[in-house]
Design a protein around this nucleic acid. Structure first.
Lengths: 355, 355
DNA sequence: CTGAAAGCGCTTACAG
DNA sequence: CTGAAAGCGCTTACAG
């Protein structure tokens, strides 16, 4: 026996309304869903009698039953591997969530946040306990970095419609995403530096390399090549900020590098600290640009030459793509790259291109 | 005919698994829900055969169908009358949402944000279009101010379980809430002022009076009475900051008021501006305390004597109350008042109590 | 230990 | 214009 969620009194059902109005449930259904393309046509009188019964009984349809019957839920899932609302301050997902809400509201969908997938402090799993919890939703938006792409592949195998915010790659299946144009934006900064006289430009990134990081480096290399600049094997460092030391700086300066493109603000700040320790400064002795915007600390980035990631717009676009897929308007892989906006800042200066 | 959400291939159902494994759906169900108190017991072999079929077909249960059959959805609704994620900066609901997520995660519930209720720019409605959209959830948390209490009353009439964050009152029905102890906190500040020599203490609030505002004033009046202070008809202003002018200040100072309890930071700052215009200052010429924390601007409040509203804890407690109701652990009205914490600040100074 | 069947509350062809 | 019935995909007493 099913337990009514309304502990106590049994909920009023369509059948109750039908009985009171002296009609069949089909008629009640047709009156309550006037735009459904059912053949049913009802007289004014009957309609009014039904509506009266609805009012008297305080009936409101069971949406779960509607979902099951219609095969449509009007729910969009939002899945994050970490908590959606992390700390008091650092508000990782906020811009994306804001974009998602803006775009989804008015489209007649509710947003389901998968908080139940949380097991202790470990990252959440989509397929925890064997069943795909996302299945309550018609489709889902995925935020944040996943541990590996196997869950995404399994989702695709199941035919479950979803879009990630940020580019994701799988060797086996096609994924849908709304991503930032890291490659283009990075290439743009290379170009910008070149116009200001820089010839020895280096890329400084972390050890962990995902799609995002790869895009930056790809953009860097292709721009260097286009400009006919030397992008030899030594022009790209893969090192985390903590590991950067005086030797690293020595090496960089020794190579004659004049402009560093730092993957994160952490890299840039660390480089500046090391320069200061040698009595040097940014941008007088070395220009530095940051390839993005930190998620948390939006204050300290402002003085740096960098580009802004359109996080809100990525959220909106992800919803657009997902809805288009659910509508059937879009069949194949849906992939959008959104432009980042360049922020001049003051850490990249013009130099004499004594080449 | 129902349209499969997976446009294209039909989704694998329990029946497919049963067929492949050569058992009935009841057996599949029992194996997949081992802790359900069904009489069904299955042999190791059969169980393995079923699990193999599940794997082969890539089956995952349809949660909507489970919900309908069980009468339980494992979804908690979160309803706000305004957008959940308002502006880039001002993050109204963030602390509460954070509390809600913290408490709900691990309890095995997902969080449903009712974004579909949005109609243009008007405030959202629970009963938009006749049906109670909240019904997809087992119960709901309501955030923010509602236009009127009629929707809440109708929800209660329907027997739908919900808890508001913030005290709500209806003359007709009992409501459940997790609220801040505005009355107690306000009384505490009166007491604090009294200990520092203040005798003429005034209350300065807005024109709109809801439960929250009422609680502050109640706390003020009762504390004044307890201390034997004069809380006559003139001790409470109901005026919005914009309407406060030089005449208002004249009147206040003329009454010999030494301490003002301002409902909002807006009131306090306006009062200070008016004082400055007369060459006076806070707290030298007048002490002012603020009865709460602004939702947005958490920076500028810090210098003021005020109390902090435990928004995160209110979110957590609302979830606790709701879950307790859903469990049946709690039957009657669930109402919790949470203490606010006093922040001394520097705008309330000790004076000679030349009474 | 297993199966057939009813039921959760709707929607929707299909007959009258 | 209206009604009886099947079906959405599960769960769960109830018989064997």
């Amino acid at each position: 026996m099913a337990i009514s969620s309304t502990s106590g009194r049994r909920r009023v059902t369509q059948a109750d309304v039908a009985r009171l109005a002296g009609v069949s449930t089909a008629v009640v259904s047709a009156i309550l869903n006037p735009n459904s393309a059912t053949g049913v046509r009802v007289s004014q009188e009957t309609a009014e009698r039904v509506r009266k019964a609805v009012r008297e009984l305080g009936y409101s349809p069971n949406l779960v039953a509607q979902s099951l019957a219609r095969g449509k839920r009007n729910i969009l899932g939002v899945f994050t591997y970490e908590p959606v609302f992390p700390s008091e301050r650092g508000n990782f997902f906020y811009p994306m969530l804001r974009g998602i809400e803006m775009q989804v509201s008015g489209a007649g969908y509710d947003l389901l946040l998968f908080t139940s997938a949380q097991t202790d402090d470990r990252p959440r799993q989509i397929f925890a306990g064997g069943s795909n919890r996302l299945g309550v939703a018609d489709g889902a938006i995925l935020l944040g970095q996943e541990p590996d792409s196997s869950e995404l592949e399994r989702l695709v195998d199941e035919g479950f419609p979803f879009v990630t915010v940020g580019r994701r790659h799988s060797g086996r299946v096609e994924l849908n995403w709304a991503a930032a144009g890291y490659a283009e934006a990075t290439a743009g900064i290379v170009q910008h530096g070149h116009e200001r006289g820089h010839r020895r430009i280096a890329f400084l990134g972390g050890v962990t390399i995902r799609e995002q990081q790869l895009d930056r480096e790809t953009g860097f290399r292709s721009a260097m090549q286009t400009l006919g600049l030397d992008a030899g094997p030594d022009c790209c460092w893969h090192i985390d900020p903590e590991a950067m030391d005086a030797d690293w700086l020595e090496n960089a300066l020794g190579q004659g590098v004049t402009l560093i493109l730092a993957e994160t603000l952490g890299h840039a700040e660390r480089a500046e600290d090391l320069l200061r320790a040698r009595g040097l400064s940014v941008p007088d002795d070395l220009s530095i640009a940051v390839l993005g915007t930190p998620l948390e600390d939006s204050k300290s980035i402002s003085r740096w030459t960098h580009f802004e990631v359109p996080r809100e717009e990525m959220g909106r676009e992800a919803v657009r793509l997902l809805l288009a897929q659910l509508d059937g308007r879009l069949r194949g892989p849906a992939q959008t790259t959104l432009p980042c906006s360049f922020i001049p800042g003051g850490t990249l200066r013009r130099i004499d291109s004594a080449h």
